[in-house]
Amino acid sequence: MTIEKHQHVVNISRGLVFNEGDQSLPGEAIETKTVGQVTVDSPVISARHVNVHYGEKQAIKDVSIDVAKNAVIAFIGPSGCGKSTFLRCLNRMNDTIANAKVSGSIRLDGSDIYDRSQDIVQLRARVGMVFQKPNPFPKSIYENVAYGPKIHGLAGNRADLDEIVQLSLRKAGLWEEVKDRLDNPGTGLSGGQQQRLCIARAIAVDPEVILMDEPCSALDPIATAKVEDLIDELRENYAIVIVTHNMQQAARVSQRTAYFHLGDLIEVGPTEQIFTNPRHRLTEDYITGRFG
């Protein structure tokens, strides 16, 4: 037992060295081929052999995974393993990073989002995003939610827009709290309210997929619980991809879980199985708290 553990630590550190590209090792110590079922029936998004490089540094290594409709998939893994990087590939937010290079194919409803004919504005209307730190625009609550529908021309007139705003705020569970002060600045809300405002803003354009990068990491437990409930409700209409460091959260809100490790997708599977019966040793180490 002791020996095995010791062995493991060595392997991990060797893995780190290898990852930083100093030199390749003779024979890999840890199997990094993805374990588990990466495909689902009729996926919204299917990513195949995705590699991401930041300059020389490879942040995502040959990752293939499907995102199912009306379900939540959680990305977990130690800090710096590439969860955010991969998430940002799904709506091409990495395009804004000058030295980021993405290869492989990511299909949304069957068409490649990195194809030259793909309009990026349209893509982001279909794949919305909620960020780690609540980032409402420094405008009124109303303007925040109305912004997406406005730029995408979703509302014909003011009444339509009012309706979209109200509906989105209701879906985000924020309506009751802000209905009397829609003209107040969105930045004046509490952190949890701001995050729900950002969710309302994302669903206002009626996307197919919502990407959430640690949406609760800046929130207290009560606000977190609200957002989690909200995610559970939103699942009815949207596919949701959530990155989280909180294992309980992943267990609570997601149906599938994917474990990333140093740029590799180690294991994918039903959340329950991942947490109760992980098949890969790295996954097990991580969820039992021995690593990460």
Partner: peptide, 22 residues
């Protein structure tokens, strides 16, 4: 703050809209 740019891009604003609106 870059978060404003990310928010605008995330909503599907074009670079010009991101600059002019936010």
């Amino acid at each position: 703050p870059p978060s404003i740019r990310e928010a605008a891009f995330g909503m599907g604003a074009s670079p010009m809209q991101m600059v002019l609106h936010h």
